[in-house]
Nucleic acid binder design. Structure first.
Lengths: 344, 344
DNA sequence: ATGAAAGCGCTAACAT
DNA sequence: ATGTTAGCGCTTTCAT
C-alpha cells in the first residue's frame, strides 16, 4: 500500500493564498466563489496534484446501454471492445443497463447510484437509445462522456460532444445500390421505423431508390425484431405485393423474413433476395445472409479512446468519428433473372 | 434529499458502553479488540441501525462473468435476469468482465477496483469460469456472493456457499437418451472438454451410453466453439468414422458441425442427426436445432435472490439451487431408418 | 485490550 | 464574495 496522499484542502488554500473554506466551496461546487478565485484555486490544485473532485481518484468508467430490455449482442460487443481498450490504458469499465423515460426532463432522470453518488465513476460511455436530456443531465453534474451517435433520438448538435457513429446510413445506401445492381426493382424495406437507427436506414434506402427513379416501399412494425420480420413478410405475401428483394433492418429481422418466406414456400434467394443489417447472425443463417458489418468492437474502442482523452483534456473541442460499414456478400441474394418472382 | 443519517461511531460507543476508539477499531477490522467487546459493539450498531462497514450503504451489486474474453450470450442473459430481479428489490447490478489466472492463489488476485476499494459494491454474483481461490479471496474481504456452480473448476464444497446450477448434467443425459430413443447407436460427442461444463456434459453423455451398453466416443478441441464443431466434424468425416448422430456441446458448436456436414454433402437430419446445448441460437439454424434450453434469465433471477437474501441474513447456511433444463425437439434429429448413414 | 485525548480533513455557521 | 471559527466524524497516538 503506497502512502501516496493527495495534498489537503488546507495546503491548497495556503498555496493559492485563500482560506480553507474557499477551497472547500470550490470543490463542492456549492457556489459563492468568484470565478477569478475559483480559477486560482483550481490552478493551485492542479499544480500540486491535489484532488478536489473525488471522482478524479476513480479509475473506473461506466458503460450505459440505456433503455434496452435485453442486452443486445451489438452492445455486448461494443462493451467488449471498449473494455479491452480501457484495460490497456489502466482503466476499468463496468456495464449497467438502465432505463429512463424518453420524455423525462434532464433534472428528473434518476442516474445509476454509482454515477450519481460518490466518486465511484470517473466518466461515462453512452450506448443504447438516449435522449438529449440525459446528455444535459451529465453536463449538469460535470460528468465526462462519449456517446454512440446512432441511437440518439431528436435534434441535437453533435459538434459539441464526443460522438462515434456507425455509418449505417451509408451502409443502407450501399446495400440498396447492391440490390439495384442485381437488377432488383421491387425492393421492400422492413423494420421498426420508430427506432431512430431504423429510421436512418430507411432514409438511406429511400435516397437511393428515389435517385434511381423507383418508389421506395416499406412496412413497419413495433415489435420484437424477429417477429416483426416474420409478420411483415407474411403480410407482403398475403397481399401479393410485387417484391423480388427485401431489405430487413437487422439480421434478426432478416431471419424472420426468411422463415416467413420459407413457410410460404418462397425460395431464398431463387425467388426473393433478402439482406440484413449488422452481421450479428447472418453467417449462421441458411442461406448465409448478405448484410452490412458494423464493427462494434472497433466502435467501442473509439468510444473508450474519446472518453479517456476527454478526461485528460477537458477543454478539448468535441470530436466526432464515423466508423464505416462493410458490405458482406453471402448467398441470400441473386441476380434477378428471367424467372420472375412467384409473387409478381 | 432526506436527512437520514446513520448514528455516529460516538453514539454507538456510548450505547455499547465502550470508547469511540474501540468502535473505530471494530469497524476498520484492524484488530486489537477482544471478540466479546467486538460482539457487543456490533450488536449495538445493529440495534441502532448504525453503519460500521461503508459497504452497507451501497445498494449496488456486481456481476462478474470472469475469465471470458467475449460476453457470452448466456452470461448476458443471466445478467439481464439478475438485473431485473435486483431492480424490483431496489438494488442495482453492474457487470464487469475480469480476468485472473487459474493458478493464482487467493491473496494475489487483483479484484476490480470498485470491489476492492471503498464501499461502492455491496455483494457479488460470480458467473463465468472461476476457481475456488476467488471464493476464498471474497471470503477474506468479507464480501457476500452467490456463484453460478456450473463453471467452477476443481474440487470444492458447494454446501458452504450460495450456488445456482443449470442442470446440464441431467440435460446431457436426457439429450443422449433422446438420441437412443431414435434408435441411434453411433453417437459422437464433440466439444472442448477442457471447459468444466463441457466435461460435465460429456459425463452425462458417457453415463447414459455406458448404461445402454454402448461405447461413448468423443472428440475434443480447444478452440472457438463454432470452429471446434466444424473441424471435429470434418475430422470424423475424413476418418470415415461410423456416426449417425452428433452431440455438440453447445449450439454454436452444433452450427459448426452442421456446416461441416453440409459442406461434405451429408444431409442433416436425413443422414446424421445433430443436437446442441443451451438453445442460444438453435431456433434460427437450418434445420432448426434440437437442443436443451437452460433458462439463463431464471438462473440470474435466482442468483440475485440468493445474494440479496445473503445480505439480509449473513448467518444463514449456504443454499444450493438447481434449475432444470428442458429438451427442445426441433428438426435436426430423425429416427434412424433403414437408410443407413452415408458414413457407415 | 481498552480508553483518553490529540489530530486530520472537511463542512457549516457566522461575520464582514 | 471571502475569512474566521466552531464542530463533526473518524483515526491515531499514547498511556495503562
Amino acid at each position: 500500500m503506497s502512502k501516496r496522499q493527495s495534498p489537503s484542502f488546507r495546503e491548497v488554500a495556503e498555496y493559492a493564498g485563500v482560506s480553507l473554506a474557499t477551497v472547500s466551496r470550490v470543490a463542492s461546487g456549492r457556489g459563492g466563489v468568484s470565478s477569478e478565485v475559483e480559477a486560482k484555486v483550481r490552478a493551485a490544485a492542479a499544480k500540486m496534484g491535489a484532488i478536489l473532485d473525488p471522482r478524479e481518484k476513480s479509475q473506473t468508467i461506466a458503460f450505459l446501454p440505456s433503455n434496452r430490455d435485453l442486452l443486445h449482442p451489438i452492445h455486448s460487443r461494443i462493451y467488449v471492445g471498449a473494455e479491452s481498450f480501457c484495460r490497456t490504458q489502466g482503466w476499468e469499465l463496468v456495464l449497467q443497463t438502465f432505463q429512463y423515460d424518453k420524455n423525462q426532463p434532464a433534472k428528473e432522470i434518476r442516474l445509476p447510484r454509482l454515477i450519481e453518488r460518490g466518486g465511484a465513476i470517473r466518466a461515462v460511455i453512452l450506448a443504447g437509445v438516449n435522449t438529449t436530456a440525459l446528455l444535459a443531465r451529465l453536463d449538469a453534474i460535470g460528468m465526462s462522456y462519449a456517446v454512440l451517435g446512432n441511437n440518439l433520438a431528436g435534434d441535437w448538435d453533435p459538434s459539441a460532444h464526443d460522438v462515434v457513429y456507425m455509418d449505417d446510413l451509408e451502409g443502407a445506401r450501399e446495400l440498396t445500390r447492391y440490390l439495384l445492381s442485381l437488377e432488383h426493382r421491387d425492393i421492400w424495406f422492413i423494420g421498426d421505423v420508430e427506432q431512430p437507427w431504423v429510421a436512418r436506414l430507411l432514409r438511406g434506402y429511400r435516397t437511393v431508390m428515389e435517385e434511381a427513379g423507383l418508389a421506395p416501399r416499406w412496412h413497419s412494425m413495433h415489435s420484437d425484431e424477429r417477429q416483426a420480420g416474420y409478420l411483415c413478410a407474411k403480410l407482403l405475401i398475403s397481399r401479393r405485393e410485387p417484391v423480388t428483394a427485401i431489405f430487413a433492418a437487422s439480421d434478426p429481422t432478416a431471419e424472420g423474413v426468411i422463415r416467413a418466406l420459407r413457410d410460404s414456400g418462397v425460395r431464398v434467394p431463387e425467388e426473393v433476395s433478402v439482406v440484413g443489417v449488422n452481421d450479428t447472425e447472418g453467417a449462421i443463417l441458411h442461406p448465409p445472409l448478405t448484410t452490412i458489418r458494423s464493427f462494434p468492437e472497433e466502435v467501442g474502442r473509439h468510444l473508450a479512446e474519446l472518453v479517456i482523452n476527454r478526461i485528460a483534456k477537458p477543454k478539448l473541442p468535441g470530436q466526432q468519428l464515423t466508423i464505416p460499414t462493410q458490405l458482406i456478400r453471402r448467398e441470400s441474394c441473386r441476380v434477378l433473372a428471367a424467372t420472375a418472382s412467384a409473387l409478381v
